[in-house]
């Protein structure tokens, strides 16, 4: 009777009764009003729509809802409640790594995935880790620097 898609969204279990072919990006933005998930292309090219899906960074515009069933999704709205976010927040602010902000929710989640895998990444590793997230404003240096600062200042968090 119930073929709803059940998944964990920002720590809470939710039931999605819509189509299994709907895009996760659209569902997050429209159905759950999580507009921190940005749409920059809908083609998997920009990373603005990044979420953490089962522990890995994913472009939500390329994920069908069927894939999410039983899984765990974290968006910026969930992640911002964490101590790790706070460390990244301070680090990004300290070097003015946020310009127009459109890439930033995705960048923050990419930062989390880099540090979760490797709490002490090299600059090169950071650059690889955010290479799926386009930023047209910053030239990336400040973001790379911010992730390095968060790793240092947030010692023990990751």
């Amino acid at each position: 009777m119930d073929d709803a898609i059940v998944f964990t969204l920002n720590g809470k279990q939710v039931r999605y009764a819509g189509s299994a072919t709907a895009r996760l990006l659209d569902v997050l933005r429209e159905d759950y009003r999580l507009t921190g998930v940005k749409c920059g292309c809908r083609e998997g090219e920009c990373g603005a729509c990044s979420v953490i899906l089962d522990g890995r960074l994913a472009n939500s515009c390329m994920v069908a809802m069927g894939r999410v069933d039983g899984g765990t999704v974290t968006t910026i709205e969930g992640y911002r409640e964490t101590a790790r976010f706070k460390a990244l927040d301070e680090a990004y602010a300290s070097v003015a790594a946020v310009q127009c902000g459109y890439c930033i929710p995705g960048m923050v989640l990419a930062s989390e995935c880099i540090l979760a895998k490797n709490p002490h990444p090299s600059e090169a590793e950071i650059r690889v880790g955010i290479s799926g997230n386009l930023c047209r404003c910053t030239g990336y240096n400040a973001i790379v620097k911010a992730i390095g600062i968060a790793a240092k200042e947030g010692e023990g968090l990751w």
Binding site: L34, T35, G36, V37, T75, I76, E77, R80, F85, D89, Y92, A93, S94, A96, V98, C100, G101, I104, P105, V108
Partner: peptide, 14 residues
Amino acid sequence: PVPKKDHAAKMDGS
């Protein structure tokens, strides 16, 4: 440098 006025809302997705 100071923290930017528009930093917080852009950082946390709001």
